[in-house]
Simulated assay, not measured.
Amino acid sequence: MLRSMYAGISGMKGFQTKLDVIGNNIANVNTAGFKKGRVTFQDMMSQMSSGAQGATDTRGGVNPAQIGLGSQMGSIDNIHTQGFRQTTNNPLDFSLEGDGMFVVASDLERTGATDFDPENIISNIDLDESNVSYTRAGNFYLDTNGNIVNSDGLYLMGYAEDGDGGINTNNNSVLKIPETAQSFSVQTNGTVNYIDADGNTQVAGQVALANFSNPAGLQKAGSNLYLNTENAGYTGLSEPETDGVASIVSGSLEMSNVDLASEFTEMITAQRGFQANTRIITTSDEILQELVNLKR
């Protein structure tokens, strides 16, 4: 059989994968915190017809003659560029300006008794033993106990207040707004303040952000969540606006970084590439048909 036919099949498979990724990008064009995917291709091993020859005293060198055997998928990358910011005026909608991710967790494990727990705050969390995920989607809510959670009920993690109005960065805690609070606000450095029943400003804690040297190495887990991997380069938790970590903008959401114009252009390219590979198969089939007809 002709090698061109198998090369055309490999090209069709690659462009099918590309269309799958483009379709997922377009489907999530309005998903908060979504990061688009991108497919890259590689050529496959080439068949050697004749090898290279070096130059001699009487003749120049000869380049190798190789016949390519098609293409293969090289990678599916997640592009973690900044999405545009949409203003919502909801104080529990957080967007990140810069690098970093929110930390959400469930099945919380505690390292021991809490030192400061005036409002039954879940603190001293052992993130290594808890079910931890990461997200850029900042649409959070308050549960019945006043804890800040996401739409799936996962707790937003941060640092606890130290009892003197400061922040204890050694105490991982669930952020909670007391039921007696009249109002609350979140500063750009992640500090959560609230007005108590007496009209005084109190500190509830501080939002903690996870930073990764290679966010493209994170594994998508669905529900706008990412899981840490060995290639993500997790560097630990940090306070917002420190160590190059993002600042938090309350009352807004970071939307998807999908550009519809770019996606439609890529879709046209993938469609034409798929059609061109089908033409290769059709042409190869016509040649084989002519060979079979030689028997007549």
Rank of each mutant, 00 (worst) to 15 (best):
R3N: 12
M5V: 13
M12C: 04
T17C: 10
D20P: 03
I22T: 09
G23V: 06
G23W: 07
N28S: 11
V29P: 09
A32Y: 02
K36R: 12
G37A: 09
V39Q: 12
F41Y: 12
M44V: 07
M45C: 01
Q47W: 01
G51H: 05
D57H: 12
D57G: 14
R59A: 14
G60K: 04
G61L: 05
N63D: 08
N63L: 06
A65I: 07
G68F: 00
G68W: 01
G68K: 02
L69W: 04
Q72L: 09
M73D: 07
N78V: 15
N78G: 14
I79R: 05
H80Q: 15
Q82I: 08
G83P: 02
R85S: 09
T87D: 13
F94I: 11
F94R: 02
G100H: 00
F102W: 01
V104Y: 00
S106W: 06
D107A: 14
T114I: 09
D115A: 09
F116M: 03
F116I: 06
D117K: 10
D117L: 08
P118Q: 09
E119R: 13
D126E: 06
D126V: 05
S130I: 06
S130H: 11
S130F: 11
N131M: 13
V132Q: 00
V132G: 00
V132W: 04
S133E: 14
T135P: 04
G138I: 03
G138R: 05
N139C: 13
N139V: 14
N139L: 15
Y141P: 05
L142H: 13
T144C: 14
N145L: 15
S151F: 15
S151K: 14
D152A: 15
Y155K: 10
L156F: 02
G158K: 04
A160P: 01
E161T: 06
D162C: 02
D162K: 02
D162W: 01
G163C: 03
D164K: 07
S173P: 00
A181R: 05
Q182R: 10
Q182H: 06
S183E: 11
S185K: 11
D196H: 11
D196V: 06
D196L: 07
D198I: 07
D198V: 07
Q202T: 02
Q202Y: 00
Q202L: 06
V203K: 04
V203D: 01
V203H: 01
Q206P: 05
Q206A: 10
A208M: 01
L209H: 01
A210Q: 02
A221M: 15
G222T: 08
N224S: 15
L225S: 11
L225P: 00
L227H: 10
G233S: 02
T235E: 10
G236E: 05
G236W: 01
L237E: 04
E239M: 06
E241D: 09
E241W: 01
G244L: 13
V245P: 08
V245A: 13
S247Y: 04
V249K: 05
V249H: 08
L253D: 03
S256P: 07
D259K: 05
L260I: 11
E263N: 08
Q271A: 07
R272S: 10
F274M: 08
A276D: 14
I287A: 02
L294K: 13
